[in-house]
Structure formats: C-alpha cells, structure tokens
C-alpha cells in the first residue's frame, strides 16, 4: 500500500519542531507500524537525510519503550502498543500523522522521542514495598486471596508507556499512579506503607507537572494493557483514607 505520512521533526529539546510530509510506498499489511517507519528511515538514510528518531525496544508490546501519537490517538487505532500495531489496520492511500507524546511532564528530546523520567521519579517516591534482599519470609507464609491477587496482577500489567498521559486532555498521570497504588495496595505485603505511598507518589506526580484527573476516561481507553479507570477510584479512596489517618 501507499501512504502519506506527516511526521513531527524536531532536532533537539530546545529546537522548534515542524510537521514534515513523507510519502511511502510498497508497505505490506504484515508489517508492524514501526517496521513501516524502519522502511522510511532506510529510504531517508539512502538519500542522505537523517533518519527519524523514535523509541522502541522489545517490539513485542511489553517493555513500554515505544509510543507514538498516530493520527491523534495514543498508539493508534487499536488497543495495543505502537510496536504491535500492524499495517493491516490501515488502508491504501491513508494519510497518517505521527507525533510524539505531548505533555509538560514528557519533554521532547528529538523528533518522536520524549523524556519519561518523571514516571521513574514517581516510583522513587513510594512505588515499592520495602523488603531488603534476604529479609523475606517463606512465600507461603502469607496466602493472598485469589481475587485480590488477580486484581493486583491486572493493575501490575501497566507497562509505563505514558499513553494515558498523552491521551488525557489534562496530561494527567493518574491512571499510571492508580495502577501502582492498586497493584501494591491489594496485597497484604503492601499494607504497611499504603498510606505513605499514596500521599508521596501523588505529591511527586503533581510536582512533575502532570495535570489533575477530571474523570474523562481517555487514559483507560488508550491504555494498551486495558488498565480500568477504577484504579483511579482506588487511588482516591486510598488518599482519603491516608489523609484521615493524618499522613
């Protein structure tokens, strides 16, 4: 198939960017979206133009490194990661716009590459259970009811890609935050630090420049791992609880 791509080019963090149009041809429907960009980059390289910078690593939908705004949708038209989006989701002759995640907390580094280290700093603020190596009790000493284990797992499936932030009109990171609060908060091991965790992580979230949640739900519908919106309810509930306990 033949496509017209309009791609955000930006030489560096402080440079002014612009949309540049690139026609591509001979694209097979079995290609992934990123393989289609590989083809374009090979063509650019051959004619002496610098290839387009974009992030990807595992290319199997689990590392969370890739993430593009494709025709206005985070990760494109399917519920999956950009690397798992295949060209069979498009038609011959389509015009596709490709932009980086846009959020104050995710500044652009180059072209389609953004800096998501704000997510790491949110985890540093409390997204863990303090259990030094060697100090763990026998694994079966604390049974975990299956429904709680399953809900914890569901929330732990977050890959930290940032699509939720990119999709949100407020550039809020609440789905990411709520997923971690739920993952750890559903487990007995997560209880001792539960109150402090939510307060500290939320404070860091706000300090990073992420917006507040206004219950729109774009985050959850863009999430490639289908993290449900109710993890944000969990976050709010935990926050109220923590504040009531004087955290």
């Amino acid at each position: 198939m033949n496509l017209t791509l309009k791609i955000w080019r930006q030489a560096g963090p402080k440079s002014k960017g612009e949309m540049v149009t690139y026609p591509v041809s001979g694209i097979s429907e079995d290609m992934s979206f990123l393989e289609m960009l590989d083809v374009l980059n090979e063509q650019l390289n051959a004619r002496g133009e610098e290839p387009i910078a974009f992030d990807s690593d595992c290319r199997e939908g689990i590392c969370g490194m890739c993430g593009l705004m494709i025709s206005g949708k985070a990760h494109g038209p399917e519920v999956t990661t950009t690397c798992q989006l295949h060209m069979r989701s498009f038609s011959d002759g389509d015009e596709i716009t490709i932009e980086p995640w846009r959020a104050d907390a995710f500044p652009v580094i180059k072209d389609l590459v953004v800096d998501r280290s704000s997510f790491d700093r949110i985890i540093q603020a409390g997204g863990f259970i303090s259990a030094n190596t060697g100090a763990a009790p026998e694994a079966h000493s604390v049974p975990v009811p299956k429904p709680k284990a399953d809900r914890s797992f569901m929330a732990a499936a977050c890959i930290g890609c940032g699509a939720c932030v990119a999709a949100c009109p407020n550039a809020s990171g609440m789905l990411f935050l709520g997923a971690k609060i739920t993952h750890l908060g559903e487990l007995p091991q997560g209880q001792p630090e539960r109150d402090a965790r939510v307060v500290n992580m939320l404070t860091q979230h706000d300090d990073e420049g992420f917006g507040g949640c206004t219950n729109i739900g774009e985050c959850s519908s863009a999430c490639p791992k289908e993290i449900p919106l109710d993890v944000i309810n969990q976050l709010n509930k935990d926050l109220r609880h923590a504040l009531a306990h004087g955290e």
Partner: peptide, 20 residues
C-alpha cells in the same frame, strides 16, 4: 529464596483459590 523475595516485594504470581 528468590520466590520468597519476589513475593515479599509484591510480585503478583498466579495463585490458587486457597491463596497459595
């Protein structure tokens, strides 16, 4: 020891209905 350590960190391994 690895399994003990990971469970203590909150790794959500698959569990049976009895919670084990």
């Amino acid at each position: 020891n690895i399994i003990d350590q990971c469970v203590a960190q909150g790794v959500p391994f698959a569990r049976e209905y009895g919670g084990l």
